[in-house]
Amino acid sequence: MSSRRIFARPARFAAIAPYVWMVLFFLVPFAFVLKISLSQTAIAQPPYEPVFALTAGWDALKAAFAALSIENFKLLVSDDIYVFAYVRSLTVALTATTLLLLIGYPIAYGMARLPKSWQAVAMVLVIVPFWTSFLIRIYAWINILQHDGLLNQILLALHLVSQPVVWLSTDSAMYIGIVYSYLPFMILPLYATLAKMEPVLEEAASDLGAPPWQVFWLVTFPLSLPGVGAGVLLCFIPIVGEFVIPDLLAGSNSLMIGQTLWLEFFTNKDWPVASAAAIVLLVVLLVPLLLYERLQKRQLEQGR
């Protein structure tokens, strides 16, 4: 038996503790979300019924099962507020991801073309903002975008506008916030594929007479597609469920689904509807999630 296979046996045992943890705190909770999404709201603590009590005996349990209903899901598809929230979440995520790709690609491309020793520095510079708090970064933008904030002061001083522009509580503020917060997630996977690319390929194309834009479009971009895919998924999926950024920067007249869920849960104390909204959100994100998992697995587990 090779030493590699002997090594594998105890390595498998290492899975036990994290496995149990993830089943208990990641997988099992979804069962509760599903169950409560099928329950009814009640003025009680916890605020839903039926409540399962395993000690109450078989008949009580059967009665509880019979009381489950898909009422909440019917509400979600029939009430415009929720339908709009899902549609808005998807449009915002799609628009923001497109913006991120357009802004992130040139930066990643510039990084990959730096001399090798500078690339490491540039990478650290891109990662560092990702380490500073999300909330702080949004707050930094509130400072800049507020009525008499820096942006308006600069615009006024340059005579680009004659009176302060309203930035806060608008979609543009929200897009600025999203792009700002997610930019490192877009840049890093793009950079990773671009840096691995053989420069000879581009040189060959240009030696054969291709103008720069053709070199980019026919050689560079197709080869960077795995990075594009990773960056797009890494941004799109969490943006669909984003709460903090739209809550603090966008107006309150059209909500994203993350905000609706939050509102139902914390303000209306309607746990069953919040749970049903979470289940629907999960179903909407299932395909991108599975794509992302496959990509991640390929990257980490097969030869890189």
Binding site: L27, V33, V240, G241, W262, S275, L285
Partner: peptide, 16 residues
């Protein structure tokens, strides 16, 4: 289970 929470919207993880 290990890769999903990396991108899972936080509202879902928190609620569950």
């Amino acid at each position: 289970m290990l890769y999903a929470p990396l991108v899972m919207p936080e509202v879902i993880t928190g609620l569950s």
